[in-house]
Design a protein around this nucleic acid. Structure first.
Lengths: 217, 217
DNA sequence: CGGCATGTTGAAACGTTTCAACGAGAGTGG
DNA sequence: CCACTCTCGTTGAAACGTTTCAACATGCCG
């Protein structure tokens, strides 16, 4: 089990079979909309390449990003008839698209059904962690948490920069922070020698233990 | 569908049958623990009477309440082997307890399985709304949102006070606010004539439209 | 090279937290 | 029945962190 504030949506369970990893491939260009809040849910998706943000817009114009989907993640599995958020391609995106009817049919198989159940409950747990983070953590902690999440447990060093899937604005919208505060938190981590920033889309993690410490592991 | 920031965990789908509404009854006294984060999940629960808070404690000692369960709500359905949060009785509580093995057996029935799926996905959607609220709303808005949620769409007036399931501290921990800020937000609503406070556990809603307006509907 | 999106920094305004003191209410025992 | 006590709620004032608005820097693409 993972510490509070640090578990994010991730398809732990190998559900490669849910689509059989074959099916219609769809491509979206940077900024394109995959579906909109309220849309009839016709498809479920599995990420192949790129990053997708899943968000809701508030009446006051603010946007809350609930998830950022990365390769191997699946989304749009909720049984509800309509999507409760909007999915957009952050960069160029390649994904597998599977008709819901096909999912429904496949879910007759108990193990697949179980996997879907676990994925859904994983998402719930992730949302609760996210929620906890927004409720009680400061800006630097949130950014640290996000970076640790992006590493997915892999090791990044001076030789291997971490690729950011999104820009500062999206990071802020995910973390519940303004773009500027996000930026300042990143700068903070940089001047503390915990990270380095070769360019806007990469981060070098110089001191992972300290980063994890700030993130609250 | 409900506006952002205002849909909370609620068992919309009538899953009365999941336990058949019969089964071992359990009683807990105010403050007693029902299960702790990390516990092996042996049971699932259905609320009969009282209120239960479901929360996680952060390393810094803060507590985030993810949900407050009220009569008819079910919880502990997650397929994970261990609970990812702690459940405690807020006041005296009566609930139905069903062994997980029984749930598993019953989930062979497609319609029941579907209902569980929908409940889980309802929880996810609720968590996302909660998350959105914590990310972008001010104190008064959050409190308004909580009060609107408590009405469950029923009509409360001067003659029928709304019963609060919990005290200010729990409200704050649910809303991601300090106890004092929660209190001040409530006072704000009172001096604006939107609510009245006959006593600490009741609220009279004098102007529901305005309350909903502040809540963001 | 210019133009545009994106990122960074500064300073003031704003809202929340924190610490501290006080008030109100419920329950208990004299 | 009152007084005591304990918990819970309320209010105040200062400290703190985030947002906002503004200006400027950087990098990318035509």
């Amino acid at each position: 089990m993972c510490a509070p504030g640090c578990r994010f949506l991730r398809s732990d369970t190998t559900t490669e079979s849910w689509i059989g990893n074959s099916g219609p491939i769809a491509r979206y260009l940077r900024g394109q909309t995959i579906f909109v809040e309220g849309d009839q849910a016709r498809w479920s998706y599995k990420m192949i390449e790129g990053a997708v943000r899943y968000s809701r817009i508030l009446p006051d114009g603010h946007r809350q990003i609930h998830d950022i989907f990365l390769p191997d993640d699946t989304f749009g599995l909720e049984p509800a008839g309509t999507f409760s958020g909007t999915a957009e391609a952050i960069g160029d995106v390649v994904l597998l698209r599977c008709p819901r009817s096909c999912i429904a049919r496949q879910s007759e198989q108990p193990d697949l059904r179980q996997a879907m159940m676990e994925m859904l409950s994983g998402s719930l747990s992730a949302a609760q962690d996210h929620l906890t983070m927004l409720g009680h953590r400061g800006a630097k902690e949130r950014v640290a948490c996000f970076l640790v999440y992006l590493t997915k447990g892999e090791i990044f060093g001076a030789d291997r920069p971490l690729e950011l899937p999104c820009g500062r604005q999206d990071m802020g919208d995910y973390l519940g922070l303004s773009l500027e505060t996000t930026c300042r938190a990143i700068t903070d981590l940089r001047v503390s020698q915990i990270i380095a920033i070769p360019n806007r889309r990469q981060i070098i993690i110089r001191d992972l233990p300290r980063l994890r410490g700030i993130a609250g592991i």
